[in-house]
Design a protein around this nucleic acid. Structure first.
Lengths: 233, 233
DNA sequence: GTCAAGTCAAGAGCAGTGCTCACAAACAGG
DNA sequence: CCTGTTTGTGAGCACTGCTCTTGACTTGAC
């Protein structure tokens, strides 16, 4: 790789960025449904066919936006979580939950793009799993720190069935080294609860029940913290 | 209302059904994205414009499918839950969770339609909330029965903040009469966990971690049963 | 400095979409 | 029977994703 890129390469990178920016603008404004390559080209003052030099299809453009969204969420959560004293494990969990929710509320369409129904039938997995695990890594690190400091007191976990123990162990190895599978199984429960709750709030499934969801959200975060055995203080 | 409808009315009902059936076929086969009024008309041997005599727009057709999906899910869950002895509260919870998951796995696209990202930007709420609460009512009834039999031993719930207590109380009034707000708040946590977990499984967010999700699912169901204080036996 | 190879934007065009509208049949109730 | 409402039709508008050819531009080796 040369740091000095050719003029052509620089123009290409810039245009790629501009296309993505305009696409994101449209997705945010009107949803992924209404994203149109032609209107992007119109807005950028170029022929619609030229877009295909940069993204082979509409779905590929959407995939690029998805990756960016994962990255943006990961960065946001990392940011808020890093402003909490490292030794206060429970506060770190609370911070990351709040971070997820607040990012999701500020980026509804991008959240829907990532955690809503996969739009084009099937998702391109390879390029997305790395940025996707970024926010999961925050939880993993937090658990690893708590385990190392010997402050985790997880709710009695009945001995895990072998399959789940294996899965949880493998996740622990990559994301939370040292943490036993029992703790990680609980963390997976908390994890799915968190995103289920945020999705329900954003997608309107709480309107009849916990509509201003702030208090319910805090309540659930505490319940899950207890489930994982995060220390109270 | 006359039970004997005119020939015209009968034809209209039948065609409405056929349009929905063909639409559902397409959604199941290729996703809501690819649903096309023109191809429905083609398949039914009629002019595309004729569809608009029955559904004013594509989104209205989708809304009709959503209502049907809610109803189908509700019926399925009611069915499996009713085959469990009424006094075994925990088994009823397990059965309804399994029912939700199994319906979701058998009707992926319809589940995504209902619990995925709201496609057209905003959802028509009024017509959907009634069928939507049908499956929630199963959980409510189960909790009400358990509370009346005095077998619920919920995890210590720190006194609820006033807003959440009010919300949970109102839900209890409509769905689980007699059940205190503290229990219902936990039930809401379990509720969101259940659908978060199912969504993650269907939408591929567990591929790296709990991919064959059976054991993890059972584990989470147990955790949530404990959280709500459902009796072990 | 020249010139072939590679890259890129443009425009026309294909096949498809949702939706509207004027019109002609078919039906319903008086 | 006949009037007024429904229903189906086909043409048409404005739009979409995507492909392909054509011509202009940039690049880097000679």
């Amino acid at each position: 790789m040369n740091a000095i890129r050719t003029a052509r390469q620089r123009a290409r990178d810039e245009l790629t960025r501009e296309i993505k920016a305009e696409a994101r603008r449209q997705v945010v404004a009107e949803g992924p449904q209404r994203l149109s390559l032609r209107s992007i080209a119109r807005e950028l003052g170029m022929a619609s066919s030229a877009i295909y030099r940069y993204f082979p299809s509409r779905d590929d453009l959407l995939t690029a936006l998805i990756i960016d969204a994962y990255d943006s969420l990961g960065a946001a959560v990392e940011h808020v979580e890093h402003h909490v004293p490292r030794e206060n494990i429970r506060a770190r969990w609370q911070a990351m939950c709040a971070g997820v929710r607040s990012w999701a509320r500020q980026h509804t369409q991008e959240y829907a793009l990532v955690y809503g129904s996969p739009v084009p039938g099937y998702r391109a997995p390879e390029e997305t799993i790395a940025p996707a695990s970024r926010v999961a890594a925050v939880l993993g690190q937090l658990l690893a720190d708590g385990w190392e400091a010997n402050v985790l007191r997880p709710v009695r976990a009945p001995s895990l069935p072998p399959g789940l123990a294996g899965q949880a162990g493998r996740v622990a190895d990559t994301i939370a080294p040292g943490v036993p599978a029992e703790v990680l199984a609980q963390a997976l429960v908390a994890w799915t609860q968190l995103f289920g709750m945020v999705s329900f709030e954003l997608f309107g499934h709480l309107v009849g029940s916990a509509d201003p969801a702030d208090e319910f959200f805090d309540h659930a975060v505490e319940c899950m913290a207890d489930l994982m055995g995060l220390p109270a203080a």
